[in-house]
Design a protein around this nucleic acid. Structure first.
Lengths: 298, 298
DNA sequence: CGTTAGCCATACATAAATGTATGGCTGATC
DNA sequence: GATCAGCCATACATTTATGTATGGCTAACG
């Protein structure tokens, strides 16, 4: 049983996996090609197995190497998390804070809030991770999350912001041309902008939808919420979007407000260890107040 | 933004956190004290914060260092997982397989099975992690788990072994002295060996218990299942243990079998990626057949 | 109060890892 | 088919990291 293996080697290993060649990995890692080559050789010797077959134009990973990839990726993630955690540890509001949110919120709502935050704290840096899949706050894939459900785990500091209402909307001129439905059944005659049944939230919400607004009727469909929003704004038809978002755009009109209304609980969440971190705390507070204002503008 | 930090430094960092001094960490890591000292200094410089206050008799971690501890621990765990994964990748049944199980199963049932396995494959090494808290198979804290519940996650290969029955038992001579109860109410007059209400399984099972066998009646209590078992074997009173375990010991007699019977579903589980790993596969099969035999001896 | 055992810091020597330079190889492009 | 751009492997120089040796310090113990 040889001794433990230097963690640096794993880093080179991951580099080669990602980049596909010693040279490219070396460039990415800021070292030279022979160094990476030696690292891989050392690993292969330690493990007693071939990780890459040297071929022209690069190295291609063996099955064994692929099976180790996830572990290496996780090491990289953890190393990044550690480094960020350290950067946020000092005094003063400086460092990098990673914020995760849905695409729509990230594109439409957060920029204003974060810009204001950056204005108050010039030494603060922000990273946005936009994804509908919740990031793992416990392992610090992100520091702060804007989420549409009550967080389950303890160890998380969570603040409930309120409810974002989702409703059907269309552009004014679209409705003028096609008529504005005042009964759900009339939706059949309209161009409906739909969603793919992906997130848990949608699956739940789908049961509460009024008849007439179901998947088979969709004329335009997109898996991206942003694309749906863009289609609504372009006057392509009737679709669902957040009410406070639509009310910013004077051309957008709400459709069937009594029949179609989905409230989404909104939470801002972070790891409890970050309460004492000045930059995270500042970002957390800014997000909470900013989103509150988004929900209920004065 | 300084460059990324060498992963080796994190290893030294964790070493100092664990050992409490540069010298001790150096011994543990197989390097020298000045080296570790330089690593810590390098980290502190990179982060721009003090991780340890140098005091007589060692370094004591600052709050900042403590907040980074979990990340460092996780890096170590992942590195270990990667190394094990690599060791199991080669051809032939060799390498290290980590098996996790409850304490009772690990002490009473597995040794025979694993000894046989080792006999068949001398190059195979086994690590036992005994804990009632389930280990994380996805992150490979263990390779194979013996569990008392159906695994939730996909990505896991699971085989249902059957049901282990838990019943009340006591030693023959104890019952001869104190009489053998044939009604639950009579338990009141006996020395009951009890458990602390810790695991989920017990909390659920507690509801199904017959009257008379509840926490207030316990004369002897232990948080360790092994200690309870030892007390039953020592003839200290009546307690719960696995039926196939008790039936090995001729002196042990089952008590109130009609009134008290808890079946525990038993599963052997591993990560699906390990299906192609010869050592894991061998261990998985051996555990499955071995446990099956434990449940229903011919 | 001296002695011991533990610790950290420093200076210097040594070993190890990295970088530089080069050659040979392949496939693409003109 | 010649040129070029990309890659890996090797030999050699250099930097970097590590180990060795030592001194100073503090707490515990006789």
């Amino acid at each position: 049983m040889a001794n433990d293996i230097g963690w640096e080697l794993y880093r080179s290993f991951l580099g080669v996996l990602r980049e596909g060649s010693l040279s490219a990995a070396a460039r990415a890692l800021g070292v030279t090609q022979p160094t990476v080559g030696r690292h891989i050789a050392a690993l292969e010797k330690s493990f007693g197995l071939t990780l890459f077959v040297r071929s022209q134009g690069g190295l291609l990973p063996t099955e064994a190497a692929e099976s180790l990839r996830l572990h290496a990726e996780e090491m990289a993630k953890t190393a990044a998390a550690l480094q960020r955690a350290a950067a946020n540890q000092g005094t003063g509001v400086r460092g990098v804070v990673r914020v995760t949110a849905s695409e729509v919120v990230g594109v439409e709502v957060l920029p204003t809030i974060l810009a204001g935050l950056r204005n108050d704290f010039p030494e603060l840096r922000l990273e946005l991770v936009l994804s509908n899949r919740p990031q793992d706050l416990l392992h610090r894939e992100a520091d702060i999350a804007v989420r549409m459900f009550r967080p389950q785990q303890t160890q998380l500091v969570a603040r409930r912001i309120g409810e974002i209402e989702v409703g059907l909307h269309a552009r004014e001129d679209y409705l003028r041309r096609h008529g504005c439905p005042d009964q759900p059944q009339q939706l059949v005659d309209h161009a409906l902008i739909g969603f793919d049944q992906q997130t848990d939230f949608i699956r739940q919400a789908a049961r509460k939808l009024p008849a007439g607004f179901d998947r088979e009727r969709f004329v335009l469909s997109a898996d991206s919420d942003l694309a749906q929003l863009a289609m609504i704004r372009a006057g392509a038809g009737i679709g669902a979007c957040q009410v406070p978002l639509a009310s910013r755009d004077r051309r957008l009109v709400r459709v069937l407000p009594e029949h179609f209304s989905l409230p989404m609980e909104t939470w801002v969440t972070m790891h409890e260890d970050l309460r004492n971190s000045a930059p995270c705390r500042a970002a957390f507070d800014a997000l909470a107040t900013g989103l509150q204002q988004y929900l209920a503008p004065d």
